[in-house]
Design a binder for these strands. Structure first.
Lengths: 205, 205
DNA sequence: CCAAAAACAGGTCAATCGTCCTGTTAATAA
DNA sequence: TTATTAACAGGACGATTGACCTGTTTTTGG
């Protein structure tokens, strides 16, 4: 019998899969612990990757942070907000639905991680101008999607006398602030209260 | 002529002044660079104090962080919000005035540092439960002050049909979120837009 | 099949971090 | 004055950080 001739695969190259696994753990860690509080060693251990692999895909920690923002945070806002707003029967209904859906999800999880965009925006927008500009772009796209949806409603004859941009700004601000309180208080209640107040206008019943 | 007999003061003890100087630089650094991104060495250099003095007044970095939150962040919210809301002719007028005053100040400075409370809340409330609870208490006091002022208005006969707690939550959320965008965009515009939207209700003109 | 490049392993490195320690000086109470 | 304590100086310490480097293996283009 001849000696085993199998090429004995010690490793399987999967660059895209490896990259995504790194982004997975980086996204979670940056959100839960913060960018500066997370070390590359933490990520290597959590993802089960070596320093060589990490450095191969992301030369610096900043490059990894930029990738998390551009690919994951932006996608998260798109999934949670942009898509649902587009598909909603109206801008106002879409906004109410997102607030309710997020609040429900948080209560099921029993843990409030906060808004992915705001979490990183607060920590990084003053630390680095590259971070700041990418984050600002996501905020802008978020508002634009809501304002565009409101303009559609207006073309259909409803919502007269409403400034779409103003409505969008108030919506994003209210959500961001409500989530900030929900995170600090570890309770989704503020999200619900603010959704009601926003729908009623000026806190009236 | 006898040799100089002055006690040659090499140092002047001023424990409270030293403590406040440390808090001064820590407050600024934690706001502009963040808690984790600021090293104690940074603070020692900026304040011109030695490690011994720093450690004497604040045994750990966390103790310093807690002091900044309890003494400086809380005071900042009190000064910017609680006092002005109490003195305002009405809750609604007070809210509008604070928004305008802050926006004006930011434009004069040409730089948006963000909301002191939200800045630290985002970075620290998931990192440490002690931090989180103190921060949550400040949010609560902030909302309570606005709600209390609104109740006063109602006792005077105005603002019927408004839920004070709901109004307070919406106000704090809107301000927090608007400031978050203003910080990320380094532009006070969102603060003004959101103030208008809040005053108009639901973004209507 | 073979060369070249990409993908990954595993470790080194200087720099920096927060903590804590031992002295020295200033304030205070007796 | 003297004794005691608080206030500060200045540095040591191990642990950790992000960057990077040299090999080895896998994949790919010709």
């Amino acid at each position: 019998m001849a000696e085993t001739r199998e090429p004995v695969r010690k490793r399987t190259n999967d660059p895209e899969g490896m990259r995504q696994r790194i982004l997975d753990v980086a996204e979670l860690a940056f959100q839960e612990r913060g960018y500066h509080a997370t070390s590359l060693g933490d990520l290597m251990q959590a993802a089960g990757v070596t320093g060589g692999a990490l450095h191969h895909h992301f030369a610096t920690k900043k490059a990894l942070g930029m990738a998390v923002i551009a690919e994951r945070v932006a996608a998260s806002v798109e999934e949670t907000w942009l898509r649902r707003i587009e598909e909603a029967p109206s801008a106002r209904a879409g906004v109410a639905q997102v607030f309710a859906a997020v609040a429900d999800e948080l209560e099921r999880q029993g843990f409030v991680r906060g808004c992915p965009l705001n979490n990183l925006a607060h920590e990084l927008s003053l630390a680095d101008d590259d971070f700041r500009m990418v984050l600002a772009g996501i905020f802008e796209a978020w508002r634009a999607a809501i304002a565009d949806r409101m303009r559609l409603d207006q073309e259909a004859g409803t919502e007269e006398g409403v400034d779409p941009d103003r409505f969008a700004a108030l919506t994003v601000a209210t959500y961001s602030g409500a989530m900030s309180m929900a995170k600090t208080e570890q309770d989704a209640a503020m999200l619900k209260v603010c959704a009601e107040a926003l729908a009623a206008g000026q806190g009236k019943r």
